[in-house]
Amino acid sequence: MSKKLRLEIVTPDRIVYSDDISSLVVRAVDGDIGILYNHAPLIATLKEWPAKLNMLDGTSRFISIAAGFIEVKHNKITILTPAAEVPEEIDYDRAMAAKERAEKRLAQKKEVDVQRAEAALHRALARLNTIKYSSEK
């Protein structure tokens, strides 16, 4: 019997990923979580950050996660997120422009919706880091 986990990353629009992996690392609100075979049941809230998928062939893959929730049960992992992107779908220039816009908004001392600007910044950083980590393989 192989020690594999079934991972599904689901957004309101589509299933972004559905396949077997050997392990997963995601960023929860209280720190990074590593999921291995036979992990205890878990439900956690996720932050915006690239999920690191360790594949069965020993390689790694990264998928940008825009917050959400993770459930682990019986070697099946489900991530529910408002948005998720594989590196090939991410437009680097657009993500960089979004990051710069959010940073400018946060630097202003005027009436700024800080939570909204911070969320935009975190989403942009998740996308940019997904590209960065994917190219470092």
Rank of each mutant, 00 (worst) to 15 (best):
P82S: 10
T130N: 06
R94N: 07
D32I: 04
E85L: 12
R6T: 02
L53T: 02
E89L: 06
A126M: 04
R123M: 01
I33N: 08
S22V: 02
V25I: 13
S64A: 12
A28G: 11
R27D: 05
S23M: 03
E88T: 03
L42D: 08
A51N: 02
I21Q: 08
N38M: 06
M96H: 10
D13C: 00
R61W: 09
A119H: 12
L5W: 03
P41L: 04
G31P: 02
G34W: 11
K137R: 03
S60K: 09
K3D: 06
L46F: 06
D30V: 02
I79L: 06
T81S: 14
D13F: 01
V10K: 06
L5C: 04
Q115R: 07
A44Q: 05
Y17M: 03
D19M: 04
A107H: 13
E136M: 14
L106E: 06
R6L: 00
N75M: 04
S64V: 00
S22K: 13
D93Y: 12
F62S: 02
I65G: 03
A28V: 02
L36E: 13
D20P: 11
E88D: 10
A84N: 03
R101Y: 08
A124T: 04
W49I: 01
D91G: 07
E118Q: 13
N54L: 14
T78H: 12
L7W: 03
A120V: 05
A67D: 05
V112K: 10
D57S: 12
A120D: 15
R116Y: 08
D30M: 10
G68C: 07
A66P: 00
A120K: 11
T59P: 00
I9Y: 01
A97L: 14
R14C: 04
L7E: 02
M1W: 03
E85S: 01
G34T: 15
A95G: 09
A51E: 01
A51L: 00
A124E: 04
R127I: 01
N54P: 14
L42K: 07
S2N: 03
A66I: 10
I79M: 05
G31C: 03
V112T: 12
H74P: 00
E118Y: 11
